Lab assay of single mutants.
Amino acid sequence: MTEYKLVVVGAGGVGKSALTIQLIQNHFVDEYDPTIEDSYRKQVVIDGETCLLDILDTAGQEEYSAMRDQYMRTGEGFLCVFAINNTKSFEDIHHYREQIKRVKDSEDVPMVLVGNKCDLPSRTVDTKQAQDLARSYGIPFIETSAKTRQGVDDAFYTLVREIRKHKEKMSKDGKKKKKKSKTKCVIM
């Protein structure tokens, strides 16, 4: 069974824990209790493949930012979460993405942009803004509501699919490099 290491990042209060708990335990946590770091595991079937999701729910508070490099190193894919009623959390996505790329030393890291709290009427981040940002990053965008469960499975499952595509691409690139290195030079 394939294991996928997913990391949920975003500013404090955007609903990272609520999304994760909704996926794992099928219930909505409405009281806000700032996370330092929590880890969850769940076995699911995605596109006919049974897999184990190892999900790291991270601290959004700035005082825990020193811990970010460590979990970013171990993560295979990242859910970059903002709240649709919090423009600052949307603007912060850029910083999370840049930090992930720096730590992973790669421009090509599996990510999904997630606009959470889409059940709320007080939207300050337009869907088109988020779609445009995701398009500019070359990553999928999904709106979710941890409260109603809308888009929750889709967000995590899409990230797994992005990781699969990335692994497939990397193995193809690896095979191309191996083929090239088999060419021999004969000096007579």
Rank of each mutant, 00 (worst) to 15 (best):
V125S: 10
V125L: 11
D126Q: 06
D126F: 06
D126H: 08
T127Q: 10
T127N: 11
T127E: 10
K128L: 09
K128C: 11
K128M: 11
K128P: 09
K128I: 09
Q129T: 09
A130I: 15
A130D: 04
A130G: 08
A130N: 04
Q131C: 09
Q131P: 05
D132S: 06
D132L: 04
D132H: 04
D132M: 04
L133W: 13
L133A: 11
L133F: 10
A134Q: 02
A134D: 05
A134P: 01
A134S: 10
R135M: 08
R135N: 13
R135D: 14
S136Q: 14
Y137E: 14
Y137Q: 08
Y137T: 13
G138M: 02
I139N: 02
F141W: 06
I142H: 09
T144M: 06
S145A: 09
S145K: 11
A146F: 00
R149E: 11
R149M: 14
R149C: 13
R149Y: 09
Q150A: 04
Q150S: 15
G151I: 07
V152Q: 13
V152E: 06
V152K: 11
V152I: 12
D153A: 13
D153G: 09
D153E: 13
D153W: 06
D154Q: 11
D154P: 03
D154F: 05
D154L: 10
A155M: 04
A155I: 13
A155V: 09
A155W: 00
A155N: 00
F156K: 00
F156S: 00
Y157C: 14
Y157I: 15
Y157F: 14
Y157H: 09
T158Q: 14
T158N: 06
T158G: 03
L159M: 02
L159T: 01
L159H: 00
V160M: 05
V160W: 02
V160I: 11
E162G: 03
E162W: 01
E162D: 03
E162M: 09
E162R: 02
R164Q: 07
R164S: 13
R164F: 04
R164V: 07
R164P: 00
R164G: 13
K165T: 06
K165S: 03
K165M: 06
K165G: 08
K165D: 04
H166T: 07
H166V: 06
H166Q: 09
H166S: 04
H166I: 06
K167H: 07
K167T: 04
K167Q: 07
K167D: 12
K167M: 02
E168M: 10
K169G: 11
K169V: 11
K169D: 11
M170E: 15
M170R: 03
K172S: 11
K172I: 11
K172V: 14
D173F: 05
K175G: 12
K175S: 13
K176F: 09
K176W: 11
K178T: 15
K178R: 07
K178M: 08
K178C: 05
K178Q: 13
S181A: 13
K182F: 01
T183H: 13
V186N: 15
V186D: 15
M188P: 15
